[in-house]
Write a protein that binds this DNA or RNA. Sequence first.
DNA 1: AATGAATGAGGGTTCATTCAT
DNA 2: AATGAATGAACCCTCATTCAT
Lengths: 225, 225, 225, 225
Amino acid sequence: MTPAVSSPDGLRADARRNHHQVLDAARQVVLEHGPGVALDEIAKAAGVGIGTLYRRFGDREGLYKAVVLRALQEARTAAEDALAEHDNGFDALAAYMHAALELRTAAVIPLVMDRLDMDDPELGPERETGAAVLEEVISRAHDDGSLPRSVDFADIGTMLVRLSRPLPGSLPREAEAELARRQLTLFLTGLQHATDDTLDSAGMSRSELREPENQETSAVGDTRP
Amino acid sequence: MTPAVSSPDGLRADARRNHHQVLDAARQVVLEHGPGVALDEIAKAAGVGIGTLYRRFGDREGLYKAVVLRALQEARTAAEDALAEHDNGFDALAAYMHAALELRTAAVIPLVMDRLDMDDPELGPERETGAAVLEEVISRAHDDGSLPRSVDFADIGTMLVRLSRPLPGSLPREAEAELARRQLTLFLTGLQHATDDTLDSAGMSRSELREPENQETSAVGDTRP
Amino acid sequence: MTPAVSSPDGLRADARRNHHQVLDAARQVVLEHGPGVALDEIAKAAGVGIGTLYRRFGDREGLYKAVVLRALQEARTAAEDALAEHDNGFDALAAYMHAALELRTAAVIPLVMDRLDMDDPELGPERETGAAVLEEVISRAHDDGSLPRSVDFADIGTMLVRLSRPLPGSLPREAEAELARRQLTLFLTGLQHATDDTLDSAGMSRSELREPENQETSAVGDTRP
Amino acid sequence: MTPAVSSPDGLRADARRNHHQVLDAARQVVLEHGPGVALDEIAKAAGVGIGTLYRRFGDREGLYKAVVLRALQEARTAAEDALAEHDNGFDALAAYMHAALELRTAAVIPLVMDRLDMDDPELGPERETGAAVLEEVISRAHDDGSLPRSVDFADIGTMLVRLSRPLPGSLPREAEAELARRQLTLFLTGLQHATDDTLDSAGMSRSELREPENQETSAVGDTRP
DNA sequence: AATGAATGAGGGTTCATTCAT
DNA sequence: AATGAATGAACCCTCATTCAT
């Protein structure tokens, strides 16, 4: 029986506690040591046996799936909040991007993403929903003229990925966060001042980003596991 | 005798050919499979035995050092060219950043960087020189007023790193390159319109970037090979 | 967590059984094939996976440490018995030397010794104790006049090492043992008839043996595995 | 064509020089680093390329064969000298044993012996001759009553092996030599005072030593290479 | 004839995953 | 349900040996 990665609900109290401890530990340890870290390490940080980790999450991918799921849910909430709190499209976009960046939890997503099948039945929908909300934020900015239509989903979404990714080398945690914030601000300044002439190519919509007319890809990542 | 990582000059003809084949293969394979890729893979791609790779470069770090050395040299040339060809500071900066991005080879640097001791006697100076040239580009833009002084070395340098890094997932090579170019353009637009009020924190100079007042770092990367 | 090389006590039943199987196999296989033998070989002889061997003992040194520890304990017991059972100093010495030689297990010590840090916190004390008991045996013989004072610790101790070492070539096990016994007897005969004039140089005490005024050593052994 | 391991005679001058340099280096380096030392190391110490070493000696065994051959010749000379210079059998024996020990070169033989086929057509005869001379020394001592007949070839021959072997650990070269000398003296004292009752088993003659009624051997040595 | 580059098998070690307790 | 011991495949690296220069 595949472990119920997402829902620790029907579990015994101690099992549920373990579930959360492992997720927290995974986020922390992956942020510290990267996605290739030994699972023993995560189990130890969570204070459980490695066997428990496997029973709960099946394997590394299952664990990362659960971690990402949580992060996606948090990100979605942020987007909904941004939409609710700002009338101007660009303001909502800026608010969302800053919030997504602030969500330290979101930082694990890019770290872990290429180990996951994003079309997974549990992950896909959540990711879909998250993307849809962002798309809506962008649409609104397009519609009220606060963002040129030539700036597209991919430009925004993948910049968020880039800014969330930890830099190689080792800056103090806060210095790194501050740097990302500054760069986001500069990028937003660019968005604000961009016109339809600024970019001379066509942007990519969400669907184009997801399903490129598959040619030779620039496939990168890291080797298993 | 430590292998001469940087200079295949005094070698026999076949050895020199191998040296370059291995470097090319390493760049290619690391871009495709990440820095954790098995060295066997690189050797095979280069058409040499694993032993040859080791004889030539000592170990993974030695190999990566040689790869980075070449990339740094190419990047430096780009900066010098930018300075020579543009009078306006901002134009030179923009030209440099686009050139550095175009240099596909530069993309391996961040991938590989955290496996290296960047203070290595061979690497350090070249890196230094590279950084110094970029610093000069920035200074000139500061001086002629085309870039607000609040935008600092770290903002520029690490954005280049972010943009050079391959995105997780697998976009077609050209789509990914185009995306990065657009994002650079937007970022440059932001720089152009930034004032000293845009950023409310202090930027980091090159030296601050290199030697943060070491607190708990946000150390991330990947586990050793 | 460093593996508990010496104490399999708190382990699960099967783990404890494995622990002993590996130690026995190691002694046997090292005696047969020398200290450079592949660890796979030892693991196979013990009927466990190579991973188990590593989990249990950390590495080759850890394994050898455990083997030596057991041997040292057996040797010490022999010395204590010799002291208890013989009043005459020389008789106790002879009894001890024969017992140490008979202890086939003791033969691994010299084979393995130069792979170990004998000042290791676990090994050091046991070795110390073992040496101290031998020193006491010798002292007693010095004191009751049954051994000339010019015969010193090193003369006795290292002859035991020499006699315990398997000879190159392949004598039948029992022939080899008998030969060593004969040579020990002859050596003891020499000790018995030696006077202070027999040896014209000064002997080495235990401390001199351990800490020579370090000059160029005659360092020999074998290259690491 | 198998290289002429033993006779550098018909060679070009430089080749002959190389031949000796390699032999000297081999003896030295093997004494220092053990018989498992990398052949590269020996080649480097000899100041020749690894290829030259292989061309000259075929492989590790060939090299060691040449080294041993030289040592055997030196040892034989020593035995002949001992016979010539001493009338009393025991004196000749003592002189021979001390000389053999002093011959630093002889120390490599046991180190290297179990890598060699001692019945090799080149090695066998020389070894034979060497052993025959020693046998003669012993016979003479038996005959003139200065050595009990119960002390046999194996007792003498293998004690020489034991005393020549470097001790594990690292004593200063001279301390180690002096220790061996003292132990030889003590052993000789034993021989001198031994009677036919001293040893209660039968000794082994040279032929028995060479061809034991092959049962399970106590085969020891080290793994290739 | 000498050289040293290339090869690849072999051994050490780690860690994802399974399974007995 | 939790635990942690055992497994073995995979990867790093070294060196004996061969072979082109």
